[in-house]
Design a protein around this nucleic acid. Sequence first.
DNA 1: GACCAGGACCATT
DNA 2: AATGGTCATGGT
Length: 286
Amino acid sequence: MSSACETSLPVRDYNLEATMSSGQVFAWERVAENWVGVVNGRWVTLRQAAEAIVVRTAEPQAEWSWLAEFLQSELDLRAVLATFPKGDPHLHAAVATCHGLRLLRQDPWECLASFILSSTKQIVQIQQIVRTLRERYGERLRAPAGQRAAFAFPTAQRLAALTEAELRDCKMGFRAPYLLATARRIVAGEFVPEALRNLPVPEARARLTALPGVGEKIADCVLLFAYGFPTAFPVDVWVARALSTFYFRNRRVRPERLRRFADRHFGPNAGYAQQYLFHHIRTQRG
DNA sequence: GACCAGGACCATT
DNA sequence: AATGGTCATGGT
């Protein structure tokens, strides 16, 4: 029952590097052996060990369930992979090249806001915009002595109070009015992120796509990365290209049809399959 | 310089 | 229902 700033979460089949680099989070930074970021308003560093993730926080923690939830460290990955279709060489190859790739369970608001900023942006640019937002408008968090200060992702309340010009100055371009309007809907109580947790997927998706700047793709990212709906299947340009190449003889197929194919072909954890394919084609390009 | 990036939205067929 | 143009910004 002791409080400590360090712990070790036992894990199996967990590839922290691949997970943090797979385009689901944009606010984590690699510093030497560690990944530095913020979870639930707490400064955290993570380091991969053989059968554990070694954790350090700035302030003593009485318990660590909040972090196990974010990392999904207690999920049995082999049980997930066992639901993948047998005899799919493309999916099999993707799994084989990124052993231990995981889906995180992010804060819904940060995930929603980040992916509103993601449209037709490269991942490095999304990271840059998010960093600027955090440093200008996020809460400054206490870090251990000798460590750089960290900044939480700004709250919806904080962003809702800004002007469109202030957001555009963070280099987000035409996405600024989308982010601003969505933040203001949350502040007005017209969109309640927590209310989506226990909804059927189609209903949750409909509420997300009703937000400005949120279409089917971004909605599925939030459903998968924040709410953990395992059938959500974001179809971006990379995934569309991969599915078209692997399963449709290079024909151009509409995203809606690709999602229906994925639901049928990949099964109850199609979202996980999507993440493996996405990471695979992005790391094997060239 | 041309082309593209974890798209969404609107006007036009 | 289905295409095409437009919206900023930065990397390759």
